[in-house]
Every structure is written in C-alpha cells, then in structure tokens.
Design a protein around this nucleic acid. Structure first.
Lengths: 250, 250
DNA sequence: ACGGGCATCCCGATCAATGAGACGGATGCT
DNA sequence: AGCATCCGTCTCATTGATCGGGATGCCCGT
C-alpha cells in the first residue's frame, strides 16, 4: 500500500539520496549525502557507488559527487515536460521578444507550480523563478491559473490548508482566494500584483491540450505597476500558438 | 569493481527500467517495461510500483507508465547541464535570431555528443538532433570539436574503434579523422559537410570554461552548400558571450 | 605532531526483495 | 458466442543481496 509506515525500501533510499542535491548544493561528498539523507556512512557510500556505476551520479576528480548528465538525459528524453516545452518554445520566444520581460511556462506538480522554462527579461531583474523551480499555487499568477482550472479536489485541498503569506499582498485568506479563483475563471487570465515580491506583477493565461484540459500556464513578470493589456494580448497570442502546436484544432 | 559478473543490483534494475523509455516510446505498460528490461513480469510490476510511489514514474489513468515530472525536476535542478545551458541561452538566442538556422549546444558524454539545447530554424528543416539526443563524435561538427579538444585518451579510443559511416561522406578512416582533428585545432572550428545527412552542413566552435577546458560545442546546421563565414562570425561572437557568462575573463 | 574528516574495505546476521504461479478481467480475433 | 491473449494483482516460501558497525589509512588544516 501507499501508506508505508516504514520510510524504507531501496527505491526510497535512492530517491532520498538524489533529493539531497539542490540548486545551491550541486556537488557534495558522499559523507554529506549520508548526513543529509539520514543514512549511515557506509550505506551512503555503497549507494552512491552504485549510482555512480549506473551513471546517474558522477564522481569528481576530488571524489565529490554530482548529478550525472545521464540522469538529465534520461529524464529529459521522454518526459511530458519536454513535449510541452518543445511545443511552447517558439511561442515563448515570440512573447519574450515583444514584451521583453521574463516569460515562463509552468505546470501543476504536487500542489505547486513547477516551472518548465523561463526566458529571461532585460537584465534578468528579479529572479524568484528558476527552471525546474517551484512557487506556491495561491501566490503566483501561474499558480492561480493552474489552481483555478484544476480539479475541485485540488481547490478544496488548497483552500483547507495554510496559505503562506510571502508578502503583505499575498492572498492568504481562503474566502478571498475563492473569489480570486472565480475571477480568474471569468476573465480567462490571472494577474498577481505584488503577491510573490512587492516590486513585480505576474500575468498568466491557461494553455489547453487537445482534450480541453488546462495543462500549463504561460506567464510574464512585469514591473509592479506596468500596464497589463499589451502583455495579455501577447500571452493570448502565444497561448493559441502553443495550443495549435499541441494539436488543438480551433 | 566495474567488472560486475552479475549484471544485477537493485540500482541496475532501476536504471534498466528507466532506460526502456525512449523519445519514441514515452508511455508503456508495466508488462512492456518488464519485457524490454528483461525482468520477470511480477518483478517489473513491483519495481514500477515502487518508482511510482517515489514519484520518479507516473501512472496514467489507463494504468500506463510514463516518466514523472519529478524525475525531470530532480535531474534538471542541479545538473551541470543546467548551468551551462543557462549561461548559453542568451547567446544562442542571438545566434539563432541572426542566422535563422538550427542552433545547438552539445557536451561530451560517454564518447558521444550529447545535445543540451537546440533552438529550431525556420520550418525546422532536418531534425536529426533533439534535445537530450546524441550523435557520434566523428560525424557531427559538434562532435569533431569536442573530440579535437578532448583528452588524448579519448582520441586514441575513438581512432581505434569502428567509425560508423552515416553517409558516404562520413569520415570513417582513422587517418583521415586524425588529419581532420588537426585541422579543427588549427582553424579553431569544425565544418562537417554532409557527414550526418547529405543535405546539410554543420559548423561548430568550442566553448571553454574559466580553466580553459573545452566544455561544450556551439553549432549551427546550414543547408549543404551555404557559405559558412557569416555563421562562423556569429558562432564566435556567441562563444565569447557564453564564456563571459561562465566567468572567463578575456 | 596531532586531531578531524574523509573514503574504503571487511564481514556475519538479517530480512526485504525475489519470481513462479494462480486468478480475474478486458480486449479482440474467428 | 467462444476462444485466445494480454493485462494487472496477489500470495508465498526461499534466498541471496543488503545492511551497518567497525577498523584502517589518507589528506588537510592547526
């Protein structure tokens, strides 16, 4: 069953090892991995050794460990993410070229918005989003779109949970969030002003696949008080372009 | 030791399962995975189940299996690949905008050229390269660059092995390849005319990191008989831009 | 010279992983 | 309808791989 009372299993261990790697911690010694994953020294060494043999991890010259390119290759080669990204890239480039601000593509993953791609704006201004990074659903414009068009189940779960307040303007009240989601559905897009960081505003639109399901959010990050209409036009144009690439006949 | 007499180990099995996924085969049933990885039915089911629990694989509504976005996230978040890609993206976009042909970034991985990124040309003409795809070192322009600036050991290994002939114009003779590599080092770039597919020509330049090591190849794919000088200018401009982003002081 | 941190190797006990097989349902071919 | 496949799920006895404590030796900074 999924309710494993024991957090153990070889697979779990491997995942725990892999999860000790973060964007800021991309290389570490085997002993560090052991500590961070709560594994005994010798076990950590053995597991890391196996992963290195398999090519998922790589051993540096000075014996430090990093994520192997083979893992990236394996994951990228055939993930959903790649197909979506492929379909979206040309459109994203166009949007970025016209708006000249951060342009992003996000999907829903484990109750958070996971960013698949990001084309950086002028001097890369604010950098809260990273490729393969995450943001809460209730705070980011992308998240609001994904949530508003998500399952009823997801919405109830989010409304019942604690809504972290990233800035004074983050929507942290369930009732207010419910109203916001209704607004997003009515307008067909989300505007999040200052809810991630006070100096910027996110604008996002939903992207649907051939079955009509919303599979991603296309968004841009603007300076806080910039007008949003031009960006919205471009986003909708981009959305249509992506949907066409996904095989949606319109 | 690497001379494992038993091809087994839990890790090996997991990797074998993951490796059954290819760009053309992105979703499959658990039984198929078992067959392709040479695992007994029931074992395959169990392993797949564990991987699904861990979030590395995902189970479809009709119980078919696909690579999980979590695996992509894990791999992308902290791999070498991402840093390089990040540093290279702006330059690649510029090159692509000027040349208007496929623009690619490749690194050396297990004696092959692994493509980290690819911005597609006009109507995406010929599509032999994919993101996270591979090409042989002796045939592609990117590969020739990576090989020419690679270790002596790598060069000897390649010259000793069999050189696959993808087209009549692929360099398949060791002596000819040796001359070609010397030429690449002299010129500082590689031109591969018709060696991957007869209708196109690849042009590649090396990209170095702060230690002076060649870490990647930046390339474009042109129609077979197009002039290469404009492309070379742009590639070198792009190369300098990437190297600056990598922290190379020039 | 010394102590801390690291990687590596060893080894016996244990226990979780293993895989054959039986079962039931879905699909499709004749 | 009837039959043949192919799928997923479950059980269970056996075993061999996994586990982790501990000893050893290396490197580095103080």
């Amino acid at each position: 069953m999924a309710n494993s009372p024991t957090g153990d299993s070889v697979t779990d261990r491997l995942v725990r090892v892999l999860e000790t790697f973060t964007p800021s911690r991309t290389v570490q010694t085997a002993a560090e991995i052991g500590r961070r994953s709560g594994l005994p020294r010798s076990s950590a060494h053995r597991i890391v050794g196996e992963l290195v043999d398999a090519g998922l991890l790589e051993r540096d010259d000075d014996r430090r460990i990093r994520i192997g390119m083979r893992l990236w290759e394996l994951a990228t080669r055939s993930s959903q993410a790649l197909r979506l990204r492929q379909a979206a890239m040309p459109a994203m480039e166009r949007v970025q070229a016209r708006i000249r601000e951060h342009t992003q593509l996000a999907v829903l993953e484990q109750d958070e918005a996971l960013f698949l791609e990001r084309l950086s704006g002028p001097t890369s201004g604010s950098n809260v989003t990273r490729i393969a990074g995450r943001l809460p659903l209730h705070a980011s414009s992308s998240g609001l779109v994904l949530l508003a068009y998500g399952t009823r189940d997801l919405q109830e779960r989010m409304l019942a949970g604690r809504l972290a307040r990233l800035t004074p303007e983050t929507i942290a009240d369930p009732a207010a969030l419910r109203r916001k989601l209704a607004e997003v559905r009515t307008l067909g897009h989300a505007v999040a002003r200052g809810s991630i960081e006070l100096v910027s505003t996110g604008v996002a639109v939903p992207v649907r696949d051939e079955t009509g399901t919303v599979v991603a959010a296309l968004s841009v990050v603007l300076p806080r008080d910039a007008p949003t209409s031009a960006a919205l036009d471009e986003l909708h144009r981009g959305r249509r372009e992506i949907e066409r690439a996904l095989g949606v006949r319109s």
